[in-house]
């Protein structure tokens, strides 16, 4: 129990970060039906801006985080307008490949900004532990869970209850009909990218907390949100949360127990676990736990 519970809590912490990233994918997918492969680059840039605002410019931590989210939202909206908008009506694959191109460009920008250093984001949690029910868990894991789930709920409420959320849902249901009802569909695309980039910045901050820090190559961590959206359903926020937590815990438990019980699987096997879950998930339920099955017409 002394190993199991902290391991689960750590898994929930990582998992909620994955869920946060996955929601970014889901928001863009619902608006434009594109899987945004540029998300990892947006995340790493967000982490960089957080670090710059908090440590470089000395802003208070919460202010720095929010400022980074706003800056990234702007970058996301601009990216959508410049690179994605010309592809409206083109095959989804072309648009997805453009996001790969955007990924490369933004990663290069990030690697220029970050350089060879490892950045810290200046978070207040550090490596301190708190006592929960008799067990010592890292503060940081609790912070990750609370902040991620809070942000995801906020997005959920925004989509469900607000006028803008209604317009966004209408856009994802049928773009032309939404246009006919007076929804500014283009603005909804920009908004989806802005929201997604803001969430990515927040997730980047959470990944950069603690001992790890942020390097240019940390971006690849964000690809773990892809197994999450596949298992949870590519258009479901609820699914992202469930699958994100599940995959985070599975990864964390593997990291704790695999070296002891199955050393033949090799070092760092936990890194591949999400992708194995992804492959199995696609075989068993191609549209995920909560996703909408795709209707195919000849």
């Amino acid at each position: 129990m002394e190993i199991l519970l902290p391991s689960i809590v750590r898994g929930l912490g990582i998992g909620s970060t994955y869920a946060l990233l996955a929601v970014g994918f889901v928001v863009i997918y619902r608006a434009t039906e594109v899987v945004n492969f540029a998300q990892p680059a947006l995340m790493i840039l967000g982490a960089y801006f957080t670090s710059w605002f908090v440590i470089g410019l000395g802003m208070p931590f919460p202010v720095g985080v929010i400022a980074a989210m706003i800056v990234m939202a702007g970058i996301g909206a601009v990216t959508e307008r410049v690179a994605m908008r010309p592809l409206v009506g083109q095959p989804v694959f072309s648009a997805a490949m453009v996001t790969v191109g955007v990924f490369i460009v933004l990663t290069m920008v990030a690697s220029r900004l970050i350089g060879p250093d490892i950045l810290t984001v200046g978070d207040p949690w550090g490596l301190e532990r708190v006592e929960v029910g008799g067990f010592a868990v890292f503060q940081i894991d609790l912070a990750k869970i609370v902040i991620s789930l809070g942000a995801i709920s906020a997005v959920g409420v925004l989509l469900k209850r607000s006028r803008i959320g209604l317009a966004m849902r209408a856009t994802s249901l049928d773009q032309e009909t939404a246009l006919a009802q007076g929804v500014n569909v283009g603005r909804m695309f920009s908004l989806a990218w802005a929201m997604s980039a803001g969430l990515a910045a927040l997730a980047g901050m959470l990944i950069g907390t603690g001992a790890g820090g942020i390097e240019a190559t940390t971006a690849l961590v964000a690809l773990k949100a892809l197994p999450v959206i596949i298992v949870g359903g590519i258009d479901s926020i609820q699914g992202s949360v469930v699958a994100g937590l599940f995959i985070g815990v599975a990864e964390s438990l593997t990291r704790t127990y695999q070296p002891e019980y199955a050393p033949w699987l090799g070092a760092n096997f936990d890194v591949v676990v999400p992708y194995l879950i992804l492959i199995v998930g696609l075989m068993v339920r191609p549209y995920g736990l909560f996703g909408t099955p795709e209707v195919q017409r000849v």
């Binding site: 899987v35 090799g266 992804l278 696609l282």
Partner: peptide
């Protein structure tokens, strides 16, 4: 396996294959 999924789902499936393959190569 690949024939079960289409389009972007296939791209993501092959991405999974890529990471698993890289791990096997490293080990």
């Amino acid at each position: 396996l690949a024939a079960r999924v289409r389009g972007l789902y296939l791209a993501i499936l092959t991405l999974g294959l890529l990471f698993v393959g890289e791990h096997v190569f490293k080990e």
